[in-house]
Amino acid sequence: MADKILKKLNIKVWRQNRASEKGKFENYTIENISTGSSFLEMMDILNNELIEKGIDPIAFDHDCREGICGTCSLYINGRPHGPDTEVTTCQLHMRKFKAGETITIEPWRARAFPVIKDLIVDRSAFDKILQAGGFVSVNTGGVPDANTIPVAYDDAEEAMDAAACIGCGACVAACKNSSAMLFVSAKVSHLAKLPQGRVEAKSRARNMIAKMDELGFGGCTNTGACEAECPKSISIVNIARLNREYLVARMSE
C-alpha cells in the first residue's frame, strides 16, 4: 500500500531551556509528512526546518530507534509513546495521525523525572532504584556450568517476560500517581522468579521500595494504566508479586 501524505500538521510542543527555567508550549506547523515515516523522523524533519529558520531544534531522547533501548520518551496526545499500543515512540508511525491534526507533545511528567531540556527528562531515578537492589551478588568463584540449577519452565517464562522491561518510564508517565511500581515490579520479578535471585529477595524488595519512595514516585492504586501503555506489555501481576515480596520482607523483620 502506498503511503499517503499528510498535507499539514500542527505541532504543539513543550519547550524548556533548562531545568531551572520555566517552560511553555510552542506551536509549529509541518507539511507533507509521509504516513510511512516514523514519529521521530517527523521530529527530525521538523528540527531541520527549525534549524534553517534559526530556531533552536527540539531536544528529545532517542537512540536505537527500534524499540529495544527504552531511550525515546514522548507523551503524545495524552498518552506515553502516543496513540498505539505495545510500541515505543520510535516505533510509532505517522499513519496513526490525520492531516490537519494538532499533535501535543509533552515530556514525561513526574517529580522524580525532572525536565533537562524540552522533551528530555532525567530518568536516573530508575538507575538509582536498580542500584538499590536490582542485582544478584556473585561474590566469588568461577562461572557455574549451564543448567546446574534447574529452573521450571513456567518460572523461566515469567522471569523472561518481566525482564523484557526496557526501563523507558512510560509506566510512570501513564500513571495518574506517577508511580514506578510496574518498573520496580518487573525488576524485582525477573530476579524473584529465579533461584539465583531468591537469596537476596527480601533485602531487594525492601531496598528498592525504600529508594522508590525516597525519590518521590507516587503509590500504586492499581488503575492498570501502566500495563496498557507499557511498550513491552509488562503485566500488573508483577505488581502483586512485588507487594507480596515486600510485605513478606517487612513482616519477617
Partner: peptide, 10 residues
C-alpha cells in the same frame, strides 16, 4: 499534563 487521554488506558 496539558493533554491527557487517561481513558485510553484505565
Amino acid at each position: 499534563y496539558a493533554a491527557k487521554n487517561m481513558g485510553a488506558s484505565s
